[in-house]
Amino acid sequence: MSENVARRGFLVGGLGGAALLAAGCTSNEPAAAPSSAAAAPAPAASGNDQPGTKVTIGFSAPAADHGWIAAIAKNAEATAKQYSDIDFKPVEPTNDINQQISAVESLIAQKVNALVILPNDGQQLNQVALQATEAGIPVINLDRVFPDKLAYRTWIGGDNYGMGVAAGHFIGKQLKDKGVSNPVIVEIQGIATLPLTQDRSKGFADALKTYGFSVTAKQDAKFTVETGNQVATSLLQAHKKIDAMWNHDDDQGVGVLAAIKEAGRDEFVMVGGAGSLNAMKEIQSGTSVLKATVTYSPTMASSAIRLARLVAQGKGMSDLVENSVPQSITLASETITKDNVEKYLELGFES
């Protein structure tokens, strides 16, 4: 694999516009600049941030072999450290389903006060999440959803359908403005079997339909740089002319862009997904096929830790009237273009 395909170091910025604007347990103050250390949002100025009952929060997520996942883990840890009343108990991150189940079972056995779980696969970890709930431990389900609502107290994640809609509208408008008819539109998914990927694809198809367009070809790239490179190479070879490309994930997009540059192709417009720093820099350059990316902010992990703390302490969200934390929180997906990229740069994570 060439150097421009190799994975780079990780960093994470502060809480961006896609984060939880309504919640009193979050802040919108950006970090001063990107750095290799996690720059989790500063605690909001509310009564909820005063030290309360000491709570132990368990945390489990996949292995940090992906920029977005690395940012999730760093944000969770950094946010937990901001509170003197949180005892943070992360378990070894893993991509092995059975190992993650065992790790969560160990946290249940320790009788933690709350669990924050980003499952490798919500379906396969549903049973262990139910075990936690049945043991009286509230589960904050992060991102990849458990199919059984009894398995979690609160879900927080990005708007996957909204990501697809945003990408579809950006591409649809670009092609309409150019007067393109019957365009060749290719889509590079993450992991095709995940509900989040299916939601992204459905949103994309639904938005394109409003312009009279549809996806010509799609293939999944497993959220990895290497597979992104392979899939993009295959699609470029199969389609001698492409009008638009949507790549679901900016991490795998490192490999996608490398394949595009290697092939010397620049006849199409490309949209990314998640909002990585390197994607933003490509957009800012004005010389790349990558013209936009739609956000899916890893700052959701910061909010998940704060929600777990509130639930464990029996508190609600200070900006809401209700006395308890909502059952489901969906973050907004925003479109980053050359026109607004400046305000997002310091919020990006490195792929």
Score class of each variant (00 low, 15 high):
P90L: 06
A63L: 09
K89C: 01
D85Q: 13
A45D: 15
N120H: 02
P34M: 03
G52D: 07
F88C: 04
F59C: 03
A44E: 05
L118G: 04
N75I: 05
D121S: 09
A39F: 08
S36D: 10
L115A: 06
G58P: 15
P119K: 02
Y83K: 01
Q50K: 07
E29Q: 10
I117E: 02
G67R: 00
A70V: 14
K74S: 03
S46M: 02
V91L: 02
W68S: 06
K89L: 10
A114P: 13
V55F: 09
I69Q: 13
A33T: 14
L21E: 08
E105Y: 07
A39P: 07
S102K: 14
N48F: 03
P93T: 10
S84D: 12
G47H: 00
Q110M: 11
A37C: 03
P62I: 04
E92P: 08
I86H: 04
L107D: 04
A114M: 06
T56R: 07
D49I: 05
H66S: 10
L21V: 10
I108D: 14
S84Q: 15
A32W: 13
A40C: 12
S36W: 15
P51S: 06
V116C: 12
I72C: 14
G52F: 04
Q50Y: 08
V112H: 14
N120T: 10
K74Q: 11
P90I: 04
N113W: 15
K54M: 14
A109T: 14
Q100F: 08
S60P: 02
F88A: 02
D121G: 10
S106P: 11
A103C: 12
A73H: 13
A45Y: 00
